[in-house]
Design a binder for these strands. Structure first.
Length: 823
RNA sequence: GCCGCGGUGGUGGAAUGGUAUACACGAGGGACUUAAAAUCCCUUGGAGCUUGCUCCAUGCGGGUUCAAGUCCCGCCCGCGGCACCA
């Protein structure tokens, strides 16, 4: 009876069956324990699904199917991160409305994802660009605003001339736009910010963005990435009086070892105190010119590594708090940055940058450590040397302990205080773009801002817009967006509630939209209660179904998305809306899949693999298993068509085993039973540890074994199919049915392996002499020490090495090894 | 410069301090076949010779240990992140 493995019809059959019967629908009311497994939802790009997507999705699908068999109520949803620049840029080029292209892309993505047979509950599908979703994104804006966590500020912002929009700090890579790679410049604009910095440290019972990391199961490198991004530095602030005035200048120091060496001070050109420091007309002119020159430069130019260090003397001196009686000239310098420390720096010969600056302008320097090499300035961050000319610290060797003492001394002497600085800034969320959620704010004739009342949400995106970027949001010129009738209605409501004075009139809406990262900062809650019309999600439900037990996605979201989602969770927690203050309990990243040439897949290189082609030729089950078998989940790895074929052959082998090999009802032989339990054990542990590649190889070992049998015991086939099911659900389901089972394989319980049966009872015990392998003996696994040693010594291959030697030491590790140390 | 990750056969990779190279790919040989494909079986880290034994191999150099791919110290190389950071 020959019947070929026909993957197309099998996969089509089971996918239809699953969908028609809604077999993966999750009820929030289930009595089973919940387990929430989430993929980072994709941006539905025009290019369609990338082979990198199914890598993560297969992993979560394996865990989902496994956990369901273990008796959990698994919530496993999928949706679309559907707002964003690419759709808008596409609209500019082709005049196709972003909504049209996005919905089209979603269709393609959904088809492709469904063809891979993932067990998503499609009744929970969401798309962030739909009004019923972004209504709640706007609700979150209201929530943050109401609680003082959203504010508008005129600030120098990162501006991309090409995209004609503001970018968050996180979207500026080396001074270049994250999207178009063009140089980013600074521009002063009124922008909306979220107060994420209020959540860095633990406060009011909500763990901070730093502390919270300690209690979650995330890759250590990701935690470190978040800590670095937050960039907490503990140090001291030093106070200085400006000579002849009451002005106080504060400088920051993270490492106070060299403070006695400092001889001059530099201040950032943007610093508000600068004006008050300028003395005399000539200095005033020079400073004004210099500030103007600095303003002309872009961030990129100003942070160029070998930018010429430039500065101008202000005419003022600060009194040195360390060296009594000394005066420190105050300079404006282009390397002093307003957004680090206090914007003012104490400078010394022990910093290469400061040293170069001082040499150029002939500013006197002082050294507090003897230099080894006269030509080189001592590195400021080195931690070697003995201090001299350093007040009470002269003669002491620099050490962690000494730094501590110096900090204490500074506080005692009242010349400074302890402080922390952070790299993290508040999150700039305004975007001068169309394809995003409108910010729910209106303005009156005096430019006062008001929140759009909740019942007026969603503030819908209009369709009468011109996409060509002008630097203003396309919404500015939309007539329907600023419809006077709507504004009057909102005005009446605002006046009625007493928020807005009677003598004013609303004139316009806020026409900026929100950063798409806002939409993706809360989507995991919407999945829990996607149809809710009264709230973004029911409070009881988000406490019941959350937090996310397992979150899987690319490592490129190490900072941005993960930090923002944590911030949202903490904001809700602080205001009593949710019981947990971390959203993602366990996080794993999939490694990037490279092209066959070992390079990143890209259209221009022509090394892109289309999942559709693989599915058509080899089937979804092959693609799924291949991507798991490629290598360690989190590791980067190149694609191999030959490898795909190998997996396909494996599945065909399984097929033939089940369909062509005669079955027997009897108990499997001892060796087969052993291998079954070993496989079950390994697959169980490997799924839980995300070691899918070795789980697959163990199943291959089992299949190779079974293939050699004349008849295959039914029990063995059953167990193999159960192990295989999470990986290749279509094939497993089909063969399960083929075996004559009435119930589906997905309804089976995940069997517990028998540790006794999984254990080998006869082992090949290696015998070493002086650590070198000299032979192995077949023995009982729990052989005694004496027996093992005796047996070892009498082995001819071993005895040869023991002849005329004195045995110094006998090592026996039960079940592992014998080592005889001789001389 | 700082932080993180990695370096094992021809290739992807496996290995709680305990037989390094599982599993897969590729290659070679054989069976089946008129032939090919498919399938199955055998061989496959390197070197040497006396062909079943010896030596050498986990980026390099040291160390700890009865025993190191694994732990420690010092380097080299590749990848990723941050960086005029006071």
């Amino acid at each position: 009876m020959k019947k070929p493995y026909h993957h197309q019809s099998i996969e089509d059959k089971w996918q239809k069956h699953w969908q028609k019967k809604k077999l993966f629908k999750t009820e929030n009311s289930s009595r089973k324990p919940k387990y929430y497994i989430l993929d980072m939802f994709p941006y539905p790009s025009g290019a369609g699904l990338h082979v990198g997507h199914p890598e993560g999705y297969t992993a979560t699908d394996i865990v989902s199917r496994y956990m369901r068999m273990k008796g959990y109520n698994v919530i496993h949803p999928m949706g679309w991160d559907a707002f964003g620049l690419p759709a808008e840029n596409y609209a500019i080029k082709t005049k196709i409305h972003p909504e049209t292209s996005t919905l089209n892309n979603i269709k393609t993505f959904k088809r492709q994802i469904q063809e891979l047979g993932f067990s998503y509950d499609w009744d929970r599908e969401i798309a962030t660009c739909l009004p019923e979703y972004y209504r709640w994104t706007q609700w979150f804006f209201r929530f943050l605003y109401t609680n003082g966590l959203a504010y508008k500020k005129k600030a120098p912002v990162n501006w991309c001339k090409n995209c004609r929009t503001v970018l968050a700090n996180e979207q500026v890579i080396n001074g270049h736009c994250d999207r178009c790679k063009k140089v980013v410049i600074q521009k002063k604009l009124a922008q909306w910010f979220f107060r994420i910095t209020d959540f860095i440290e633990t406060k009011k019972g909500t763990s901070g963005l730093l502390k919270g990391l300690d209690k979650i199961d995330w890759p250590e490198s990701t935690k470190i990435g978040q800590r670095n991004w937050i960039g907490k530095k503990e140090g001291v602030i030093i106070h200085h009086q400006v000579e002849g005035t009451n002005i106080q200048l504060d400088t920051f120091s993270a490492y106070p070892a060299w403070l006695f060496a400092d001889t001059f001070i530099v201040i950032a050109p943007e610093h508000p105190l600068l004006k008050e420091l300028v003395r005399g007309v000539s200095h005033e002119n020079a400073v004004n010119d210099f500030v103007k020159e600095c303003k002309k430069m872009s961030t990129q130019e100003r942070s160029e590594e070998n930018l010429e260090k430039k500065g101008v003397f202000t005419g003022s001196y600060a009194l040195d708090s360390f060296n009594q009686g000394s005066k420190m000239p105050i300079w404006v310098a282009n390397f002093a940055l307003m957004d680090f420390g206090t914007g003012i720096i104490r400078c010394s010969a022990h910093d290469i940058r400061d040293y170069q600056f001082a040499s150029k302008y002939h500013i006197p320097l002082k050294e507090v450590v003897d230099r080894v090499n006269e030509l080189e300035p001592v590195n400021a961050h080195g931690n070697e040397g003995t201090l001299k000319d350093s007040g009470p610290f002269s003669g002491k060797i620099i050490s962690e302990q000494l730094i501590k003492e110096m900090k204490e001394w500074i506080i005692q002497q009242k010349i400074g205080k302890k402080t922390e600085t952070y790299r993290l800034r508040d999150w700039l969320v305004s975007r001068q773009r169309y394809w995003g959620a409108p910010i729910p704010i209106v303005y009156d004739n005096e430019e006062n801002e008001y929140l759009v009342p909740e019942e007026e949400l969603p503030v819908k995106l209009p369709t009468d817009v011109d996409f060509n970027p002008t630097g203003e949001s396309p919404l500015v010129h939309s007539k329907s967006f600023h419809n006077p009738k709507d504004l009057m209605r909102i005005e009446r409501k605002l006046k009625k509630s007493g928020v807005m004075p009677k003598d004013r009139t609303l004139v316009r809406r806020e026409s900026d939209t929100m950063d798409t990262f806002v939409c993706s900062s809360w989507y995991f809650w919407r999945f829990m209660d996607p149809k809710n019309k009264k709230a973004f999600a029911d409070k009881k439900i988000i406490n019941r179904m959350g937090p996310i037990d397992l979150y899987v996605g690319g490592a490129e979201h190490t900072v941005l998305h993960l930090l923002y989602a944590r911030f949202f969770t903490k904001a809700l927690h602080r205001h009593g809306m949710v019981q947990y203050d971390e959203p993602f309990m366990k996080l794993r990243h999939q490694g990037m899949i490279l092209g066959e040439d070992g390079e990143k897949m890209s259209k221009s290189r022509g090394n892109v693999i289309n999942p559709d082609t693989i599915i058509e030729q080899y089937g979804a089950d092959t693609l799924r298993i291949y991507e798991m078998f490629m290598g360690p989940f989190e590791q980067m790895k190149p694609w191999s068509m030959k490898g795909v074929l190998g997996v396909y052959r494996f599945l065909q082998k399984v097929w033939r085993l089940a369909v062509e090999t005669p079955k027997t009802k009897g108990k499997p032989q001892a060796t087969t039973t052993k291998m079954l339990h070993q496989t079950l054990k390994k697959v169980t542990h490997d799924i839980e540890d995300f070691k899918f590649n070795t789980a697959v190889s163990q199943m291959m070992i089992l299949v190779n074994h079974l293939q050699r049998l004349e008849k295959i015991p039914g029990e063995a086939l059953e167990m193999l199919l159960i192990c295989l099911y999470p990986f290749a659900p279509h094939l497993a389901e089909e063969l399960w049915e083929e075996m004559g089972n009435k119930k589906m394989i997905m309804e089976q319980k995940w069997p517990k392996y028998n540790p006794k049966l999984a254990k080998e009872d006869l082992i090949a015990l290696p015998i070493q002499v002086n650590g070198k392998l000299r032979g192995t003996i077949k023995v009982d696994a729990d052989i005694s020490r004496e027996e093992a040693l005796d047996l070892s010594k009498t082995q001819p291959v071993v005895a040869k090495y023991l002849k005329d030697k004195e045995i110094l030491k006998e090592i026996f590790v039960p079940g592992k090894i014998v080592n005889l140390v001789v001389r």
